[in-house]
Amino acid sequence: MNYSIKDLEQLSGIKAHTLRIWEQRYEVLKPKRTDTNIRYYDDDDLKLVLNIALLNEHGYKISKIADMSWDDMRREVLNVTEKHQSNSEQIQALTISMIDLDEERFEKIMSTNFLHQGFENTMISIVFPFLQRIGVLWQTGAITPAHEHFISNLIRQKIIVAIDGLVAKYTASSPKFMLFLPEGELHEIGLLFTNYLIRVRGGRVVYLGQSLPFSDLCETYRIYRPSYLFSIITTTPAAEIQSYVDNLSKNFFESTIILSGFQVITQDLDLPENVLIAYNIADLPLLLSKLENRINVV
């Protein structure tokens, strides 16, 4: 993939002006040129800049970095990410593993953070901010859909393993939740993590997953009769949101409906009495703990 210097700036956080100075003074980057003489950078240049950015943030002088071999630089980056546990460093490290399609590195980063912060805190403080960053990079064309699919599937696997490892805590009196994504909605990671949060707190869940037709939702609701419905809406056209929310409220008036996602939190919706909004993934643990005090918070 080809990148402009502005793409490198957005991905690394290093100003384009600074990158040009480093090019001229230290020759750390050597841009290519198209047949029409337009400068561009490739995937190797992007990986190099991401590694330089991380080292530079930790006090390594650019003059020293410029003298490093690729193997030396990679080794120093791994040392830094293992020693330092700030969220920004871990997000940068995950970004590098995504660009490099490096599953082994991803696994090491995640395992280290699970050990130090626990699964839930790692997801909230590192993984979801990282996913937000991916969204911006994908929308601006700085990464390919393949990069996004690669890392999303790895994260999805981690959540599924965490759910499978839970010991059931619910009882006959535990609140019942039904989790689903509207028809056409495929971004499942947030819904999977909500499934984990509810189960670890003793709630009972029917998980219906991606792209559920409304008629199927109604039929499942009739059978299961949940106390709560939860959904995330990120890609549905904004003009349809209010009517969709009203339809949910009308059809499931006996339950509390919790909604999240870009198309919900960015709209000035007229919320029915039985509809709540979770504005951020970090809000969910507290919101779940407050739902009529019916979930045992751990």
Rank of each mutant, 00 (worst) to 15 (best):
I277C: 01
F193Y: 12
T236G: 01
S231I: 03
F253D: 13
L212S: 05
G190P: 05
V275Q: 05
G190A: 12
F230Y: 09
L197F: 06
I241E: 00
L259W: 02
A239T: 09
L284Y: 11
Q210F: 02
Q242D: 00
G190R: 03
T234Q: 05
P213S: 00
D246L: 12
E254H: 10
L217C: 09
E188F: 09
N274K: 12
S211K: 09
T220L: 06
N251M: 08
Q210R: 15
I257H: 09
I258D: 00
T220S: 14
E254T: 11
I258S: 03
T220A: 13
E254W: 04
S227P: 01
I277T: 07
A239C: 11
V264M: 04
P237L: 09
N247C: 12
I189L: 13
V200D: 02
P285A: 11
L208P: 08
L217E: 05
E254I: 03
I223D: 15
I265M: 07
N195K: 11
Y244V: 12
V264P: 00
Y244G: 06
E185Y: 01
A239R: 15
N247M: 14
N251W: 04
F252H: 10
T236F: 04
F180I: 01
Y207I: 02
F262Y: 10
S243M: 14
S231G: 05
T256I: 15
E185K: 00
S215N: 10
R199T: 10
S243A: 14
P182H: 05
L212M: 13
S249M: 11
E185V: 00
S211N: 11
K250M: 11
E273K: 15
Q263S: 12
I258P: 01
N274L: 14
T236C: 06
A239H: 14
V205A: 02
D216T: 09
V245E: 02
L276P: 00
Y196A: 06
S243H: 13
G190S: 11
S215Q: 12
R201Y: 08
E183K: 14
F230T: 03
G203I: 07
Y228T: 11
Y221Q: 04
R201G: 12
R199S: 11
S249G: 09
Q210W: 01
Y244I: 15
N251D: 07
P272A: 10
Y244F: 15
C218Y: 12
A238P: 01
Y228N: 06
E273N: 13
F252V: 08
S227Y: 07
V275M: 08
F262V: 08
N274V: 15
T266Y: 08
Y196L: 11
L229G: 03
L191I: 05
F230K: 04
Q242I: 14
A239L: 13
I241F: 07
E240M: 13
V264N: 00
L212Q: 05
V275C: 09
P285Y: 09
P237M: 08
Q263H: 00
Y221L: 04
E183W: 02
Y244R: 10
S255L: 06
D216K: 09
N195Y: 13
Q263P: 01
Y228F: 13
I241K: 03
P285H: 08
F180D: 01
P285W: 08
I223H: 13
L208T: 03
S260P: 13
I258V: 07
R199H: 04
L186T: 06
V205E: 01
